[in-house]
Design a protein around this nucleic acid. Sequence first.
DNA 1: CTACATTGTGAACACCGCATACATTCGAAG
DNA 2: CTTCGAATGTATGCGGTGTTCACAATGTAG
Lengths: 197, 197
Amino acid sequence: MKNRPYHHGDLATELLARAEQTLREKGAAALSLRELAREIGVSPAAPSRHFKSKQALLDALALGGFERLAEATAASQREVGESFAERLDAAARAYVGFTLANAALVDLMFSVKHSPEASEALRAAAGRWSEQLFELIGAGQRRGEVREGAPERVTLPVFAALHGYAGLAVSGMLPAEMAEHGLDDVIASILRQCRPE
Amino acid sequence: MKNRPYHHGDLATELLARAEQTLREKGAAALSLRELAREIGVSPAAPSRHFKSKQALLDALALGGFERLAEATAASQREVGESFAERLDAAARAYVGFTLANAALVDLMFSVKHSPEASEALRAAAGRWSEQLFELIGAGQRRGEVREGAPERVTLPVFAALHGYAGLAVSGMLPAEMAEHGLDDVIASILRQCRPE
DNA sequence: CTACATTGTGAACACCGCATACATTCGAAG
DNA sequence: CTTCGAATGTATGCGGTGTTCACAATGTAG
């Protein structure tokens, strides 16, 4: 009856793909392992062979999100000028754009609830990405376009502003008049706070 | 057998209270109407008389959160000096303190998922609170301690930085060396970006 | 070819949110 | 005070969920 062989071949990746699709369309809360299995045409217990719990599936999604975010950030820096203002602008728009395009996923990534062992991998992936921000700031400092100071202590406020703006925009809590110039204003304020004396 | 009368007397408020407690202790996902009813000693369907759905209960919690946040912010401004630096510092610590002390609740407040009619009330409560921030910035401008500009466009980056820092801190994504001076650095950067030319 | 590890199945369990029909209590109008 | 409707709590059931277990089918290494 079923044309599908007994073994699916690559259930894990198809689970992740479909999960991310439903995540995007209906949010994290509406994600159901059983429904996923039903869509793929596999028994309800099959997913548990690849993800020992629903949380594990979510952790895997979050991990992939960080990797893609890191890639998007790197890409934004590849074809842009060398001035700090340009590079920051590109990185900021890459980050906020990614967040707006993957709201539920980003929510997952920065969610508090992660299984302890996944937390390690997540922290690592997040670190691999935030290093790009350190490097961005560091380069600006070397060019004399960013004020002096320990890179982490200069980078944190920058990143916080971006993260905060993206979160506010996604939550729909921004009145229209703020959303319009919102990102521009945030970027401008970051440049102002980074300026050397 | 039961000493409790047939009518509980104030089920709605006790539901909210217990819900917030479990929210704090075990997170939003672990919140169950049935378990709440069990704890209070009432039938599983009883809560539905006061909150037509689980989402309605969550909306009510979020609403209360905004009100308490507004109150905490107002309190932070009552017994503090008049300089912008002092007032911003107080408001910032009030906001970040509130989110750290009520992480899951704040998550709920800024979550995307709200029933349409609750969104209105939520937006209103959020507005009542954000007006305090506008006023904070406006007062700073009148004192000549904050750069000129439309209040919304000056306030947004300020609030974004605070919101973003709180989110990062809560998510545990901050390395130790950042978390230490983190808030201080964010506040300093806000002051820098607000400074007149 | 045989043994073992991997992957998918089927049934079961204990939950959950929600809806419906019914019971009890409260409060106001007559 | 009685009555009668509204508010509140109960009992039960439905369809859904995540997770676990024993078992079956398939792949793979020796």
